[in-house]
């Protein structure tokens, strides 16, 4: 049991920080520009493909820096020459723009790298068990993912809370127009934040792409859950995104190990579920099997009872 708990906690932390790397950019972009970027997970996919391509030439460590940088540049171009122009035509146009971008990038990746997964491997020097606990290995690469994520989290915290640009970003989250008329170039701040958000998603792709699989479907696989994270956390709230990333990662990670149903749980408390109807059937579903739907269930319940999310400020 303690093995399950310790490994689940570690996995929650890794998966949670990876989710935060993706959702932090998305939630900031939404908070600042009111744009719900459907294509955000595509930047994650681009990160993985860029890293694959770069690491073929110069190795994994340079790719760790170059790939996110490349994705950030793509992000800035998208904002500067795409979104900024579409912005004038309202939110629906923006949403459709990012929607189109999502499919465009997907097809572009297929065109360049093909429909099958590419051979983006964990680097050999990180491919060994870091430690063994209760006969299970914890790989060095997972430790590495943890270190990169924590380093990213700390740098982001410092930039937002200790620098002037961080102050400008925080102020723009509530009153972008005012920041603008105080003489700060808000449109260019938007561009950099969009680039940085894309770059962070790219970084998640760099360290996640070889751990999972680098294939055209990877944006679609992770995209929806990232939306769940920012809705549950509260759209526009970084702290909210952090809390909800860990929460949802925990929910999914722990659910995997729960090979029992609600009916079994009730049995423990002496309640025997005897209903044969649909309710009985639902109660007898193994919790582990609901893993994929739990986040979405959580989001829907959240939207009904607390639409602004855990730490959101918007009342909508």
């Amino acid at each position: 049991m303690s093995e399950f708990i310790i490994f689940s906690l570690l996995n929650t932390l890794i998966y949670g920080l990876l989710l935060f790397m993706l959702s932090s950019g998305l939630t900031l972009i939404f908070g600042l520009m009111n744009v719900l970027n459907f294509a955000h997970a595509s930047f994650y996919m681009l990160g993985a493909y860029f890293a694959y391509q770069v690491s073929l030439k110069v190795g994994f460590i340079p790719a760790l820096f170059l790939a996110p940088l490349g994705v950030a540049v793509v992000g800035m171009l998208v904002e500067r020459y795409g979104l900024r122009r579409v912005h004038a035509h309202g939110h629906v146009a923006e949403l459709l723009f990012t929607f189109g971008l999502f499919f465009l990038l997907d097809e572009l990746v297929v065109l360049i790298w093909g429909r099958n997964p590419v051979d983006y491997q964990i680097p050999a020097f990180l491919d060994f068990p870091l430690f063994t606990l209760f006969n299970s290995d914890f790989s060095a690469y997972r430790g590495f993912m943890l270190v990169v994520s924590i380093a990213m989290f700390i740098s982001m915290y410092l930039v937002i809370n200790r620098t002037r640009i961080g102050l400008i970003i925080q102020a723009s989250l509530t009153h972008a127009e005012m920041v603008n008329v105080l003489g700060h170039n808000v449109p260019s701040v938007f561009m950099y934040v969009f680039g940085a958000g894309a770059g962070l998603a790219g970084l998640a792709g760099v360290i996640g792409g070889n751990y999972l699989v680098t294939e055209p479907g990877m944006a679609q696989a992770l995209g929806p859950i990232v939306f769940v994270v920012i809705v549950v956390g509260g759209m526009g709230s970084l702290t909210g995104a952090f809390v909800s990333s860990l929460l949802l990662a925990g929910l999914q990670t722990f659910a995997v190990g729960m090979e029992f149903s609600l009916a079994d749980l009730f049995m423990k408390f002496g309640v025997n579920v005897q209903s044969d109807g649909i309710i009985g059937d639902i109660l007898r579903i193994q919790i582990a099997n609901t893993r994929a739907m739990l986040p979405f269930l959580f989001m829907i319940i959240m939207l009904i009872f607390r639409p602004k999310g855990l730490l959101g400020v918007r009342e909508e």
Binding site: I168, Q170, T174, H175, E177, L182, H184
Partner: peptide, 21 residues
């Protein structure tokens, strides 16, 4: 502006610092 547009989550000092160009 009429609505004052104070940055509500920032301190008084941070509000003033943002006034500097």
């Amino acid at each position: 502006p009429e609505d004052r547009s104070i940055f509500p989550t920032l301190t008084v000092q941070q509000n003033l610092e943002l006034g500097m160009k």
